[in-house]
Computed example of a mutant assay.
Amino acid sequence: MTGDSDISATGDSPAGDSQRVIALVDDDRNILTTLSIALQAEGYATRVYSDGEAALAALRQNPPDLAVFDIKMPRMDGLELLRKLRETSDLPVIFLTSKDQEADEEVGLAMGADDYIAKPFSQRLLLARIRAILRRAAPLEANEDAAPPQPGSASAALNRGRLAMDPARHKVTWDGQPVSLTVTEFLLLEALAQRPGVIKSRNQLMDAAYPDDVFVDDRTVDSHIKRLRRKFRSVDPEFGAIETLYGAGYSFSDG
């Protein structure tokens, strides 16, 4: 197993078309080996990289379905890897962080990570988070040639004032200008925009973006909301449609 591996960690041939592919980026070879074995036992194919520089080119050239990044790595750490990857890709990413790296967790989520798990971590928890994110991403990967969704269906287009969302194609515009969102950001925004003016608690928003059996804390939702605002303000500096109701949650205003 090498730092530039782009194959299954236990074989010499690429994963079959029916398998979901998970990229693992960590300088700890024991973690790479252990996680590869656990993921493959669940039916996933894995690609492993022992540093960020080796991973970046491979992730851009041949994207997996999801990636798991360590933060502290040689040559290019996980934060820099995510920053560079987000220039061209909305690939779902989970961070592995040490418990004393709370600031890194917040920075990573602000940069567009979908989730994070603290080290030492439970393999069961990581597998649950991976399954959750892939389930959330699946409806957004619908074939663009498929029949248009019916009004009122879960994947129907959503128009709220200057906001337009197309869940079937994972597209968002504000005043006609495209806004690129990760899967988590899209689902949180959709939950807010479905009922303008209605306050959604953090728990309600977590339920919209995560299944009931996966725990995330309030900081995760807050970090994603901050990044959503930042992205919309990049196309409209006056954007204020996502409102904070302190002690209660968030709401969307289409006025």
Rank of each mutant, 00 (worst) to 15 (best):
V198Q: 14
A41H: 13
P148F: 03
V235G: 06
A45V: 09
A157P: 08
D51W: 03
L125N: 12
G3L: 08
G78P: 00
D236L: 03
G152Y: 11
L96D: 03
A110I: 05
S5F: 03
S251K: 04
L158R: 14
F215C: 05
R169E: 10
R195Y: 08
I31K: 00
G11V: 09
V48A: 11
D104T: 10
L24T: 03
V214A: 02
S122I: 08
V48P: 00
V235W: 04
T88F: 06
L181T: 07
T184V: 12
L59R: 04
A154I: 10
R227S: 13
M165I: 15
L109I: 10
V216P: 00
R195N: 15
N143P: 00
R75D: 14
Q19L: 07
R219I: 14
F121E: 12
A157G: 11
R233S: 07
P167G: 09
L32H: 06
P151K: 08
E238G: 01
F252K: 01
A208F: 01
L158N: 05
L134A: 02
A193P: 10
A9S: 13
S234N: 06
A208P: 04
L125C: 05
A193S: 13
L91S: 04
E141V: 09
P139S: 08
D28K: 00
D217E: 12
G3W: 07
S180L: 12
Q177F: 06
W174Y: 11
V48C: 15
L245W: 07
L24F: 07
D145V: 00
D115L: 11
E42Q: 15
I225L: 06
E106W: 05
N30I: 12
A208E: 02
Y116L: 07
S223I: 03
S5N: 12
P149I: 12
H170A: 15
G16S: 13
Y44C: 01
R202F: 13
A55D: 05
P74N: 11
K99F: 11
V235N: 04
V48T: 14
R129A: 14
E102D: 13
